[in-house]
């Protein structure tokens, strides 16, 4: 990859103090995103995916603290003023949230909330605000967009609300779109449309996308690369095809195995034994060791580091699985 990366994240840490010790929600997360690349971010629920992306936009709220190096288009985001950050958000860097229903404010109409984007970024629209807002709904295929501008969020189904969120995220023509489970609430056909939409955006506007999802099938179809997180750390990063063909980290392997696959009905789904660790009392060695079928003594005493194995693959494991 010849161009400089669009986004470089290095050693990102996010902590939340709680009465019983700090929750280390992201602990030394590093990865890069190149222009017009779609990167999948997957991993255990609660492993810090959402928090990591919130930190990228400097939206971790106090009492949460975060540190690390975030370079976006050559600018060090940690050094920007709050005002400059605000211009970036919703403009060049956009985000779509995990819960469409709570991300929309229940007391304002959908139209008002879309209009807000244009009020704070007036350069984005050509016609009047309502037309622009209706166009946003149209882009994400909400039937009769003009009328729906007057609806309140609770009058929308989950999928419709999610499409509104996606539309709002795209309104700013971002060069990086962070999508936190954007299709979770959607049926497969609307989902396919949204994925198509993301592909088209990437082609037309060269928008890079960080896609957080639990649906591995979606990452298989859409993403160029996949970053796998576990307990606040990146444990594997790899081009999609290689990851699916030959996962190297035992956790990735566990994930792929527990996925139900269409047309392969099993009596019982595989599951990774045990529970993810408490982020306030992390094990000494490898964080996955208590649940790992390959764990040996070394795993319990020495923490593995993320190492490159060439060919664009990275893995954090003492005994990675061999390429098949």
């Amino acid at each position: 990859m010849r161009e400089p990366p669009l986004l470089e994240v290095e050693d990102l840490r996010v902590e939340f103090p709680t009465p019983k010790g700090s929750v280390r929600a992201a602990d030394g997360v590093s990865f890069r995103v190149w222009p017009s690349e779609i990167v999948g971010l997957v991993g255990e629920s609660g492993c810090g995916k959402s928090v990591t992306t919130l930190a990228l936009m400097r939206l971790v709220r106090p009492p949460g603290r975060f540190s690390g190096r975030i370079v976006f288009k050559g600018r060090n985001l940690m050094a920007l003023s709050e005002h400059e950050m605000r211009l970036l958000r919703g403009g060049e860097m956009a985000m779509i949230f995990q819960n469409p229903m709570t991300a929309l404010d229940p007391v304002f109409t959908v139209g008002d909330q879309i209009a807000e984007v244009f009020q704070s970024h007036p350069q984005l629209r050509t016609g009047d605000v309502r037309t622009a807002a209706a166009a946003v709904l149209e882009q994400v295929r909400i039937p009769n967009p003009r009328a729906q501008l007057n609806a309140y969020p609770h009058q929308f189904s989950g999928g419709m609300a999610q499409r509104v969120m996606i539309g709002m995220g795209l309104a700013g023509r971002p060069s990086l779109l962070i999508a936190d489970e954007p299709t979770t609430a959607l049926d497969v056909s609307v989902q396919a449309q949204i994925l198509d939409l993301l592909r088209a955006i990437r082609e037309k506007l060269h928008t890079a996308v960080i896609l957080i999802t639990h649906d591995l099938a979606i990452t298989a179809q859409l993403c160029d690369r996949i970053v796998v997180m576990y307990a606040g750390q990146v444990v594997e990063a790899s081009p999609t095809r290689e990851l699916f063909r030959a996962p190297r980290h035992p956790y990735t392997r566990g994930l792929l195995d527990s996925m139900p696959r269409l047309g392969h009905k099993r009596a019982r789904l595989e599951q990774i034994p045990g529970q993810p660790p408490d982020l306030r009392a992390l094990p000494v060695g490898c964080r996955f060791a208590p649940r790992c079928p390959r764990a040996e003594e070394r795993c319990r005493t020495e923490e593995p580091v993320l190492v490159s194995s060439g060919d664009g693959r990275y893995v954090r494991c003492h005994f990675p699985l061999e390429a098949r």
Binding site: P143, V188, A192, Q193, A217, A220, Q221, R241, F244, M259
Partner: peptide
């Protein structure tokens, strides 16, 4: 249109096109 978990599978186009009928 269900996605399959195989990066080598051809991308599945949205299964059908045409307008969503107006629920009203």
């Amino acid at each position: 249109s269900a996605p399959v978990a195989d990066p080598d599978a051809p991308a599945r186009p949205p299964a059908y096109i045409g307008d969503v009928p107006n629920p009203l």
